[in-house]
Amino acid sequence: MNPGIIGSFKDCSRICGQSFFLWFPALALCGIMIGMKYHKDILEVIFYARGGQGAKSAAEILAQSALKEGKFVQSFPSFGPERSGAPTKTYLRISNREIRTHEPVVDPDIAVVLDETLLESEPVTQGLDKNEAIIVNTEMTAQEVKNILRFDGKVYPTAANRISMDIVGQPRPNTVILGKLVQVTEMVKLESVLEEFRNIFEAKVGKEITDKNIAAIEKAYDLI
């Protein structure tokens, strides 16, 4: 991801995030700001994971958070055979204007890899240039990941499994890694994600586990 787009997207969410409708002129400006770099005003993400890791849920949490901030969203899995453990791709688009396309994401701004064993088997850097970024759930260093991928863009290693084990007591990297993704892109506000997580999960898993998960997302968000 180009620093420009991160900057613009940050500015954008600051200016327009909460008051989408009140700040329409500012919104139009954001569109132009993002558009200048990429000729589009849409942020596109691909999640690489294994079936059962919850990439689809993670993308949907972001989609619901962005919706609440007044944005347009689209999230869909790459429709391969769905079985536990098989490599999966999930696409996410967040935009300031209506999303009409139904093509898979071909030119992502950022990729998220939930399982490091996919680094060598899946084309996880496809469509990413040296100004774009990849977030990987791993204990490796950025340089080690770069060596495997032969990728000269930005690499953000995030030990999402460990953070999740330490805080939640279960390996749930999918939601933890959202903290890092939000930190890097500021595609939505962290509070929106946490609120959405609570909305979706508190009734299912109880307050204690929800609080722990939220703490884990915050921890990933605070990683340098």
Binding site: Q74, F76, P77, F79, E98, I99, H102
Partner: peptide, 10 residues
């Protein structure tokens, strides 16, 4: 099928 049935959109 899938393109619309399984795609989350506004």
């Amino acid at each position: 099928g899938f393109n619309t049935s399984h795609s989350v959109e506004n």
